[in-house]
């Protein structure tokens, strides 16, 4: 009769790697890397919270690239000149490429793309809420480049120094291409600003509609009194985040307002004025109710964006299945030939 006398108790360590000593050693190693501002690589031990935060953030970024193809893709068949059509086609294609790098970066953390796409489709992971707004005119193709890509780059440049190596490296390439896109967007708008009255009106209308949502892209306030809310403090300690949302938003406003002046447009904020004392542009109160409403699903295009994405995925299932079946057949034949 064998009893449980020699068996471990459920909560007792069976070996030294299950002890607090080992957990502490891993934590010390990880903290050491963070302290010396070294990159964490996929094989390094990392706290689960760090891993989960990165998976969520990188996945959300990848999803944003893929969903972001839709509002601009909306103008591919209608671009007003062949040169603009070619530039836009290359841009939308770049976004698909960025999505792929980012899914690959997320995969180094032990998830796979299929799992992340399932979560996107089920509404369990988010994408940038800016893409829940519609692209109504050709000027919107320019405004997305100028404002949305401009805001995205402001967020992403610090990520080139993110503590997680694969993400930081992906960001270096993404930022370079995004910078190109931002210039192209500005150039679309610059051309409109030099054009007919109808083109100028189209430009002003797009700026009116995209300005505030672009400022919302930096996320809710997280400095001053709000510093204790949310994840900013932890993410900064982990070297995932380098600046607060509010700092990045201010930098974006400071960089963008002079460009709006150059375009000869007004921005839809009566409180926008240069503050000599601060050395920054002051700007008005952001409508955070709108931000939360759109984020939670009640924006003009939330349902459409996901429906389009899910339809492409479901309608393509038979194609992906065929590719897998064919690869298996080829492998089998090759094996047969070798044997």
């Amino acid at each position: 009769m064998y009893g449980n006398d020699f068996g471990p108790r459920d909560d007792a360590p069976l070996n030294a790697a299950e002890t607090q000593d080992y957990t502490q050693a891993l934590e010390d190693y990880f903290n050491g890397l963070i302290d010396e501002d070294s990159r964490i690589e996929p094989r390094d031990a990392m706290p689960d919270g760090y891993r989960q935060t990165l998976i969520r953030q990188i996945a959300q970024h990848a999803h944003s690239e893929i969903i972001g193809m839709q509002p601009e893709g909306n103008w591919l068949t209608r671009a007003p000149s062949l040169r603009r059509k070619a530039i836009l086609l290359a841009k939308v294609q770049d976004e698909a490429g960025h999505g792929l790098y980012l899914y690959s970066a997320a995969e180094t953390l032990g998830v796979d793309r299929e799992e992340l796409l399932d979560k996107l489709h089920a509404g369990k992971q988010k994408y940038s809420s800016i893409f829940n707004y519609p692209t109504l005119t050709w000027a919107d193709a320019g405004a997305i480049g100028w404002l949305v890509d401009g805001a995205a780059i402001m967020n992403q440049v610090p990520l080139c120094r993110c503590s997680y190596g694969p993400y930081a490296r992906a960001m270096i390439r993404v930022c370079k291409e995004e910078s190109f896109h931002q210039r192209q967007g500005f150039e679309i708008l610059w051309t409109l600003s030099q054009g007919t009255d109808a083109q100028k009106a189209m430009l002003q209308d797009a700026a009116n509609r995209w300005w505030w949502p672009a400022l919302m892209m930096f996320g809710p306030p997280d400095s001053g009194e709000k510093a204790a809310d949310g994840h900013t403090a932890q993410n900064m300690a982990w070297g995932i985040k380098r600046f607060t949302n509010d700092d990045l938003r201010q930098k974006f406003v400071d960089m963008t307002v002079p460009q709006a002046i150059k375009l000869g447009i007004t921005l839809p904020d009566p409180d926008l004025r240069w503050n000599e004392e601060r050395g920054h542009w002051d700007f008005g109160e952001i409508d955070w109710d709108e931000f939360w409403r759109v984020l939670k699903g009640d924006g003009p295009c939330n349902a459409e964006r996901i429906a389009t994405r899910v339809a492409a995925h479901e309608e393509g299932a038979w194609v992906r299945e065929a590719a897998v079946a064919y690869a298996a057949k080829v492998a089998e034949r090759e094996q047969g030939a070798v044997a």
Partner: peptide, 27 residues
Amino acid sequence: AEWLTHAPQIEEDMALGNIGLDLLGQA
């Protein structure tokens, strides 16, 4: 160009976009 965002996988969005871009350049 109509295929972009509707392809069976993201790699194919890229490939069809790329082919469209080549043809547009020829045109």
